[in-house]
Write a protein that binds this DNA or RNA. Structure first.
Length: 306
DNA sequence: AAGCCGTGGCT
DNA sequence: TAGCCAAGGCT
């Protein structure tokens, strides 16, 4: 339990908390009707959506989420599926280890939680692939709990509206959580709606490149706008390289296996990357991660398919 | 705790 | 064009 009185906001140059009802009303009027926000979506649907949405844009998730919900409507349904089928159904969402962890989580939920996704943050945190963001997102969005949800969008909104900075610096989990906690009303219902509203605002209005201040419900009370939209002046953000990394090679190898009916000979994998040493390293790591399995006759395939 | 883990659209 | 970026988690 977080004590709101222990937040680390320094009162001198900080703005008073945003008006929850202003945000909640804006959300009620303008929110996109994403399928995982539907009234019939349970904790399982929300957990699947939140996992897919980790580092992956909404538009790419939409069709895959629909297919998964139709195919595996309960955790036990997914748990019963072979890993290879799960990886194929994950398609090109990226970071396929998420699919394997979700598969493991489904098994735990089915066997230890009566096939029902937990509503308690700490219980959720114990599931594989569920971290501080996802646990709170499920508690708030699926169960209407007051659980501060901190993602990259919320961090940006708070940085601007509250701290008057163009963007949030590097994550500071405790402070970020305390910042958001201080903004939320005390009751579960309004707090959960405000959490959803903060995320939606960051995604659709208070964006990185072209913030829509002219249509922002917080425009009249935004520290950044009031300060004249000063440029970001924090430490430079680390940008990951992708081209030429093991990550790219792993992706190419897995793409071959997703596209084949069954295990393939080594030569078929060798064709996707010229650097043999890097190719071997990538394949080894996939085997270690359990994303690829080797058959007794030496071929390679998705796990659980032979 | 800094670095790794996919993928593709956008500017 | 080539970097930037997208509802993070794990080690």
């Amino acid at each position: 339990m977080t004590n709101p009185d222990q937040n680390t906001l320094t009162p001198s140059d900080e703005r008073s908390p945003l008006d929850p009802d202003e945000l909640i009303d804006w959300f009620a009027n303008t929110a996109r009707d994403l399928p995982w926000r539907g009234p019939d979506v349970d904790g399982w649907g929300v957990l699947v959506s939140e996992t897919m949405l980790q580092q992956t844009p909404v538009n790419r998730v939409l069709p895959i989420w629909r297919e998964w919900m139709s195919r595996w409507p309960r955790p036990s349904d997914l748990a019963a599926a072979p890993q290879g089928e799960v990886l194929r159904a994950w398609g090109k969402l990226g970071y396929p280890r998420r699919a394997m962890r979700l598969h493991e989580a489904a098994s735990v939920i089915a066997t230890e939680h009566g096939d029902r996704v937990p509503s308690d943050v700490d219980t959720l945190l114990a599931l594989p692939g569920v971290g501080t963001y996802t646990a709170r997102a499920v508690a708030a969005f699926a169960y209407g709990r007051r659980a501060p949800v901190v993602d990259t969008n919320v961090r940006r909104v708070v940085a601007r509206a509250v701290h008057g900075a163009a963007d949030a610096g590097n994550p500071s989990p405790r402070k970020d959580l305390a910042d958001v906690d201080a903004l939320l009303p005390t009751d579960d219902h309004r707090a959960s709606r405000m959490s959803a509203a903060l995320m939606e605002l960051g995604q659709t209005v208070c964006t990185v490149r072209s913030p829509g201040c002219e249509i922002c419900p917080l425009a009249g009370n935004c520290a950044w706008l009031e300060a004249g939209q000063p440029a970001y002046d924090g430490p430079p953000k680390k940008v990951q390289r992708f081209a030429g990394t093991d990550r790219q090679v792993r992706g190419l190898l897995l793409d071959v296996l997703r596209g084949s009916d069954g295990p393939v000979p080594r030569a078929e994998l060798d064709a996707v990357w010229s650097d043999a040493a890097q190719r071997d390293r990538a394949l080894d790591s996939l085997l270690v991660d359990g994303l690829v399995e080797q058959t007794e006759d030496g071929r390679f395939g998705l796990p659980g398919e032979h």
